[in-house]
Amino acid sequence: MGNHSTVTMFVLWGFSSFPELQNLLFTVILLSHVTIVLANASIMVAIKLNHSLHSPMYFFLFALSLSETCTTMVILPRMLVDLLSESKAISLPECATQMFFFFGLGGNNCFILTAMSYDRYTAIHNPLHYPLLMTHKICLQFIMASATLGFSVSLCIVTIIFTLTFCNSNIIQHFFCDIEPVVSLACNYTFYQKMILLAFTAFTLVGSFILIMVSYVFIVRVVVKMPSAKGRYKTFSTCSSHFTVVFIHYGFACFVYLRPKNSDSFRDDTLLAVTYTVLTPLLNPIIYSLRNKDMQAALRKGIGSIIRFSPQMINKRAQKI
């Protein structure tokens, strides 16, 4: 190690491997980013303004939409800047901060999805006591616990990674500070530390996924005992949006973070991560909008109010002038 110099600045080199795609990627990611922000903002505004959506299920959906929006804000603006600039340098503190918020918010999303599955189980298994079991205070405690767990795990991951010594290179083969591309640059990264990082990742992804599946096992057991086919269909339909989002979220996340990797796979992982960081937040609000009639009605009502309100405001201002 005496012949190495300690790295204090990284270079995000992910998109430099695809020079012919950078303009296309910039356009697609910019449009996706704007769409994600507008779609999630529309859902949050609709839930806030429509009193019929002031229920635990939509309270969790509001929190999930806010968390997903913040997650994309951590990654996508920096990604767009790097696509246009020649200098893609990022300091160690900036890299650590980006990683902390990305994995903290990502873990928060996982635990919110877990809370949503418990909410659906409670509503279906014990509908008479549901208002007492899922009060606003309890829902808020679930949200706070999700954030605490997510950011605690993220802090442990970031602490382990950034106490390493980086001396092999300063080029991160990725478009953001992800775990594997960063630790591959460390010269004192051990198998023991690798297992600890894998355990934290598995705790967040596998642990929360198992809890969600347990909730759905109990939900299915209750639903199949219902005598009415119409009742079974209606009950399953209330869970369809959540289950679809869970399938997409965990499918991409587990494939990206739990499969074996090596330095040769970083180039492919970059394109996969684009899918995970852009496509998943883009699909979630679309799924909840398309598969939820109450949300569709609230969004139509909100858009209609804006359309009606705009000409009235223009006329009033014109009369004043």
Results as ranks from 00 to 15, higher is better:
residue 91 S to P: 02
residue 70 C to P: 05
residue 91 S to F: 05
residue 97 T to N: 11
residue 99 M to V: 15
residue 95 C to H: 05
residue 73 M to E: 08
residue 100 F to N: 07
residue 89 A to K: 00
residue 74 V to G: 07
residue 96 A to V: 13
residue 99 M to N: 08
residue 82 D to W: 03
residue 71 T to H: 06
residue 79 M to V: 14
residue 75 I to C: 05
residue 69 T to V: 09
residue 74 V to Y: 02
residue 85 S to G: 11
residue 73 M to A: 06
residue 90 I to L: 02
residue 75 I to L: 06
residue 71 T to P: 02
residue 78 R to S: 04
residue 86 E to G: 15
residue 96 A to G: 12
residue 74 V to C: 05
residue 77 P to G: 09
residue 96 A to L: 09
residue 87 S to D: 12
residue 87 S to H: 06
residue 86 E to T: 15
residue 81 V to T: 05
residue 70 C to I: 13
residue 92 L to T: 12
residue 88 K to E: 00
residue 90 I to D: 00
residue 94 E to G: 08
residue 75 I to R: 02
residue 84 L to T: 05
residue 87 S to Q: 07
residue 91 S to W: 09
residue 83 L to I: 03
residue 77 P to H: 09
residue 84 L to G: 02
residue 72 T to P: 04
residue 69 T to D: 10
residue 87 S to T: 06
residue 77 P to T: 11
residue 77 P to Q: 11
residue 80 L to H: 07
residue 84 L to Y: 04
residue 86 E to K: 09
residue 100 F to A: 14
residue 93 P to V: 11
residue 84 L to H: 03
residue 86 E to M: 12
residue 78 R to Q: 04
residue 69 T to C: 12
residue 93 P to D: 14
residue 81 V to M: 03
residue 96 A to C: 11
residue 83 L to R: 02
residue 81 V to K: 00
residue 75 I to Y: 05
residue 93 P to T: 14
residue 84 L to C: 10
residue 97 T to P: 08
residue 91 S to G: 03
residue 95 C to E: 08
residue 84 L to P: 04
residue 93 P to K: 14
residue 92 L to N: 06
residue 94 E to K: 15
residue 85 S to A: 10
residue 87 S to C: 12
residue 94 E to R: 14
residue 93 P to W: 14
residue 79 M to I: 12
residue 74 V to Q: 01
residue 75 I to V: 14
residue 82 D to T: 09
residue 88 K to V: 03
residue 99 M to E: 10
residue 99 M to A: 15
residue 98 Q to F: 05
residue 78 R to K: 08
residue 85 S to M: 10
residue 98 Q to V: 11
residue 80 L to P: 05
residue 89 A to S: 11
residue 72 T to F: 07
residue 84 L to Q: 12
residue 97 T to D: 06
residue 91 S to H: 04
residue 79 M to A: 07
residue 90 I to M: 10
residue 76 L to M: 13
residue 86 E to I: 14
residue 99 M to G: 14
residue 78 R to Y: 03
residue 71 T to S: 06
residue 91 S to T: 15
residue 100 F to K: 10
residue 76 L to Q: 05
residue 97 T to E: 10
residue 88 K to T: 02
residue 89 A to R: 00
residue 93 P to H: 13
residue 84 L to W: 07
residue 78 R to D: 01
residue 81 V to C: 02
residue 84 L to A: 07
residue 94 E to A: 15
residue 76 L to N: 06
residue 78 R to V: 05
residue 84 L to I: 08
residue 96 A to Y: 11
residue 70 C to M: 13
residue 86 E to V: 11
residue 88 K to L: 01
residue 95 C to R: 03
residue 82 D to Y: 04
residue 99 M to K: 08
residue 86 E to Y: 09
residue 97 T to G: 09
residue 93 P to M: 12
residue 83 L to D: 01
residue 88 K to C: 03
residue 74 V to F: 03
residue 85 S to E: 14
residue 88 K to H: 07
residue 92 L to I: 15
residue 85 S to R: 07
residue 95 C to Q: 09
residue 90 I to H: 01
residue 92 L to V: 15
residue 80 L to T: 09
residue 75 I to G: 01
residue 94 E to I: 09
residue 94 E to Y: 14
residue 95 C to Y: 13
